[in-house]
């Protein structure tokens, strides 16, 4: 048994003065790279008290997306730029103007061949992870909300089989793309994730903030927040909807009854045992859901609003970055806890 969410416990908690929006982990190590509100990428090992060894500078706004492609670290930031960095030397390999507006996230395909970037310019671009050549430019999201405010394209996700890419935006619109051809395969809508208040406050909040395909690539999970009464606050239950993307059928609708805020990250256990969700409002949460039984296996408060996570190869350790903290959780079965 590789992991047991019921044994969830914090094994490390590092305080920081910045806000961490993105996280990447060097395989088979505790070495983390975090994208910060100080516009830099920091590398740290939380198990050695987070002593910072390296810093990558060059972005001019929040670093919202980080991924590793071999020995290259790829970053996307609110400055619209995409950076390639040498992990060893911390030198910038290249920095390109990738989008007109904020880059909200950077994802990498399972074979490390492609990366996808999403931006508030409402375009998803697929790049060759090694050469930085643009492979596709995917336009399937309306630039404005129905009430004519700028929309936002928050997230993308590759399917485990590497064939599919999903993108999702502020109003809850999801597009499934064919990675090879760049063609649009299906669209879905989860309007419950977006709140427009036409009367009391006349602005909006919400959106789909996280996506994950099921291990069989047949379904897509969307994370966000439910309908909000007072749009000044993240004041609704964290929300997950799962669709069969081919039929459009919504197979799961999960809001729980405890944790409020945005679902910032969704990760499926490759064995299919659980779906992991995390995020937050002023505080944070973490939860594990058994999709077969449609019930929560384990949920808890997180010590901070979590923005990004990485999970180790054994799926028994979770590294999380968020508001002012880095956290390491373990969910190891008793016999292997050490």
């Amino acid at each position: 048994m590789p992991s047991d969410p019921s044994k969830l416990k914090i094994v490390k908690e590092l305080n920081r003065s910045d806000i961490l929006f993105s996280l990447a982990r060097l395989p088979a190590t505790n070495q983390l790279f975090v994208g910060s509100s100080d516009f830099a990428i920091h590398s740290l090992d939380p198990m050695t008290e987070g002593k910072e060894s390296k810093q990558f500078t060059g972005h001019q706004s929040y670093v919202a997306g980080l991924t590793l492609a071999g020995d290259q670290l790829i970053s996307g930031a609110y400055d619209g730029r995409l950076g390639w960095w040498d992990v060893e030397t911390q030198q910038s390999i290249r920095m390109i103007d990738a989008h007109d507006k904020w880059i909200r996230g950077v994802e990498i395909s399972p074979d490390d061949q492609f990366i996808s970037t999403v931006s508030d310019d409402m375009v998803c671009r697929v790049w060759n992870a090694q050469t930085s050549e643009m492979v596709h430019e995917l336009r399937g999201h309306a630039p404005q909300t129905p009430t004519r405010f700028p929309s936002m394209l928050f997230c993308s996700a590759f399917s485990p089989d590497g064939q599919l890419l999903a993108t999702a935006d502020k109003v809850g619109h999801v597009v499934i793309w064919d990675v090879q051809t760049g063609s649009e395969l299906a669209t879905l809508d989860a309007p419950g994730m977006y709140t427009w208040d036409p009367k009391q406050r006349i602005h909006s909040i919400g959106g789909i903030r996280s996506l994950a395909f099921t291990p069989d690539s047949k379904r897509i999970a969307c994370g966000g927040i439910g309908q909000i009464g007072n749009v000044d606050h993240l004041d609704a239950l964290a929300r997950i909807e799962i669709f069969d993307w081919q039929t459009g059928e919504r197979t799961h609708e999960l809001a729980g009854d405890t944790h409020k805020g945005l679902v910032e990250r969704l990760v499926f256990d490759p064995e299919g045992n659980w779906l992991f969700a995390t995020g937050g409002d002023h505080g944070g949460f973490i939860k594990f859901i058994d999709l077969e039984k449609n019930e929560i296996i384990k949920q808890d408060k997180a010590p901070m609003h979590v923005h990004d996570v990485a999970i180790n190869e054994q799926h028994d350790t979770i590294y999380a970055a968020g508001h002012g903290k880095v956290i390491v959780w373990e969910l190891k079965p008793d016999e292997t806890t050490g």
């Binding site: 405010f149 936002m152 406050r201 006349i202 602005h203 909006s204 909040i205 993240l234």
Partner: peptide, 19 residues
Amino acid sequence: RAWWDSHGQNFETHLELVA
């Protein structure tokens, strides 16, 4: 023009309202 009270998601609220 109300309501600017962005206790949550200040930046996204201002993206709408300042624009």
